[in-house]
Each structure stands twice: as C-alpha cells, then as structure tokens.
Design a protein around this nucleic acid. Structure first.
Ligand SMILES: [Mn+2]
Ligand SMILES: [Mn+2]
Ligand SMILES: [Zn+2]
Ligand SMILES: [Zn+2]
Lengths: 183, 183
DNA sequence: TATCAGGTGATAATGATTATCATCCGTATG
DNA sequence: CATACGGATGATAATCATTATCACCTGATA
C-alpha cells in the first residue's frame, strides 16, 4: 500500500475530456444545457484547489458577470447529485461531537444522519506507515463510511427521526455521490 | 481486517472513568473547573449519538436551566482543543467542491486549509470486502488526512494565504485533536 | 416560431456559529 | 475566611454560508 500525491499536470487532459462530454451527460440526466452550467463545470474542472462556491462564482463572473451566487450554489449541488462533482467537506450541516476518544471510525446514514461508531481492526496498522504525504506532516486520519441504515432502506418513504431533520432529504442527496470507490 | 460496530454497552463504564478524571484533566490543561464544563462533558459522555451543540445544551439545561447555548458551543470547542472531545463533522466551514471523480483521498492542512489529492494504492482492495457494517448498507467511504503543510510548519507564525482566512487559526485548532490514531 | 417546464437573478430568510461585553466566579494567596 | 485577579459565562448582536422565494427568462421540443 503506497500513498502518492496526485500531480496537477494530470488534470489538464482530464478536464478537457470531462468538458467534452459534459453537455451529453446533462442531457442524459435530463437537465437542460445552460451557459451557466457549462461555465460552472469549466471553472470547477479548471481549478485544482477544491474551491468553494464563492471562488467558482468569481471565476465564472470573469466571463459571465451576471451569474448569481445562488445559481452557483444550486448548480454545484446539482453537479454532485448527478455525479459530475464531489463535495469534499462532507456533512455540511451543524457540527456533531463525540466523547469517545478511542480510535474509531464512523458510519453515517445519508438519510436520517444517524452516526455509528465502528472499529476496523488492522486498519491502523495497515495505514500507519503509509500516511506520509510529501509536503505534509500527517496529524491523524479519519474514515467516514456513507451508508443507508436498515430503517431508512426499508421505509423507502420519508425517514429521519431527528427533530431537526427538515431539509434532510435534500441534503442527503449529496451523499448519494460516491467520493471513493465501493459499491 | 475486520469491521465491527461499537456496542453502546461498552460506553457506560468508559463514561464513568472519563468523568472521574475530567476535573484533573481540566486543571492539567490550566482550565478552571466550572459547573458548566462538568455538566457539558457529562452530557457528551452520556450520549452515544454524536449529539450537536443544541442537543447537549438541552440536556445540560435539565439541571442547569441558565446555561447559555454560546457557552455550550465554546466549551465543546475547548474540549476538542484539549483533547477531551472530538468533532465528528470535520471541516466545518464553507463547502469545498471537487471536479476530480477519480477515486482518491485528501490531505488537508489544518492551518491554511489547503486540500491536496492523494491516492493510496491498495487501500480500495484492502477495504473493499470489509465495509459491511451490520444494520447499514455502505455506499462509499472517504479518508481524510489531517496534516500540517510544510509552508505552515516552517512559518510558525500566522499562516493562511486564502483571502477569507479570518478565524482560520482558531478553527484550525479543532484539527489539532487526533480523531483516529497516527502520530 | 410557439409552448412550457424548468433554470436563473435578485433578494430575503434561515440557522449555526462567533463576537462582544458587562458581570460572575474559580483559583491562588495571605 | 477575605481579597484580588483573570478567565468563564450569559445575554445578545453580528456574521456568513446556504437556502427559499418568486418574477422573469430560456433551452428543448414540436
Ligand atoms: Mn464516534
Ligand atoms: Mn480531490
Ligand atoms: Zn437512516
Ligand atoms: Zn498549510
């Protein structure tokens, strides 16, 4: 098992290829191809620093000064929903705290937001010697497993038992994308 | 490598032990022992659902109706800073997006918030058959490595080059805790 | 070109978190 | 125990990213 930093240079061709097929992907998803969407995906693919909505908006406005920040937010979420982008900062709602200091990881239900502790025996050892990214000094790591809990899986309908679960269904969509392998 | 869900039952004795030494740990960290802090850590250790600040505040107010929500927020951040609690929802600031759909992970500088793509060859395969938490259906996973980039490590002083980095130093503190092993 | 479902811009609303500041209180000391 | 001090707290306002609203616009289709 070997860790390596992804080179920026690799992204130029990748971005070109993605742009070439983006319009078709929108149509495949049943979404109209709008200049705003094209500009936003272009700005996202042109950046390699995991930009935030505001930065993307600024880039887009260099050519389309009229574009609204709200549209950028909406479009980025849409891109995540159809699998054309990925939200790096997961669980972007209110903070959740944990008193359990034992080394452990988390399974998060994308629907009801239940968070469950899990231990993965051997993972620490397996990763221990690997997490030395050049240019960084590793402080620690965290593995988050996005999942659908059985309760939510069975009740296909509206789930969520937390009192403040309004908007949970919409927000849950961001998890439907699969940042990293599996399933 | 084997994944298993942590049983709630295991937490009762753990919470008791942590409570017993909490006051001493505050003193060791140079922090006064206040009734609010005691109540807040007790509420956190008594919960097994990774509660949010508001839920902890509600629990605390059952005995201390006067406690301010601001104090709960402040105290939880303090607990994370001294290593008595852990923030499950990492990177809690504005959302960051990624156009790179290739399976990859991230190194995040806790100081300047730079995010860098990394690949860990073999990790997918190693975890592939493991991520089956009972009661959940896994959709995907994400490994986030908290780190200090060389730039920030050398310039011990104020770092952060992003334009909107106000408060970054304070926020960075939350990363100083080590949710999971390493270092 | 006409139609329409859906996208967009402008703006207000939301909601979690943080800042402010006067007051309170835990700690150290005599 | 009384005193003094510096940090902690409560009340409240401010911040700021994100979301909702709604009138208008526009891409897709026939
Ligand atoms: Mn946990
Ligand atoms: Mn990335
Ligand atoms: Zn669920
Ligand atoms: Zn840095």
């Amino acid at each position: 098992m070997k860790l390596k930093v992804v080179k920026d240079s690799r992204r130029a061709g990748y971005a070109r290829a993605r742009m070439a097929e983006f319009a078709d992907r929108c149509r495949a998803a049943g979404l109209p191809v709008t200049p705003q969407r094209m500009a936003i995906i272009a700005a996202l693919l042109g950046a390699n620093d995991h930009p935030r909505a505001e930065a993307i908006c600024a880039e887009v406005r260099r050519r389309h000064p009229h574009v609204s920040l709200a549209t950028v937010h909406r479009t980025l979420e849409t891109l995540c929903r159809i699998g054309e982008a990925r939200k790096v900062t997961t669980l972007h709602d209110s903070a959740r705290y944990d008193g359990n200091l034992e080394p452990h990881h988390h399974v998060v239900c994308v629907r009801c937001r239940r968070i469950c502790d899990v231990e993965i025996a051997g993972l620490e050892d397996a990763l221990g010697g690997v997490l030395t990214a050049p240019g960084f000094r590793a402080l620690g790591w965290s593995l988050e497993i996005r999942a659908l809990c059985d309760d939510c899986a069975s009740s296909g309908g509206r789930a969520g038992r937390s009192p403040k679960s309004r908007g949970a269904d919409r927000r849950a969509a961001q998890f439907a994308t699969k940042p990293t392998g599996s399933d």
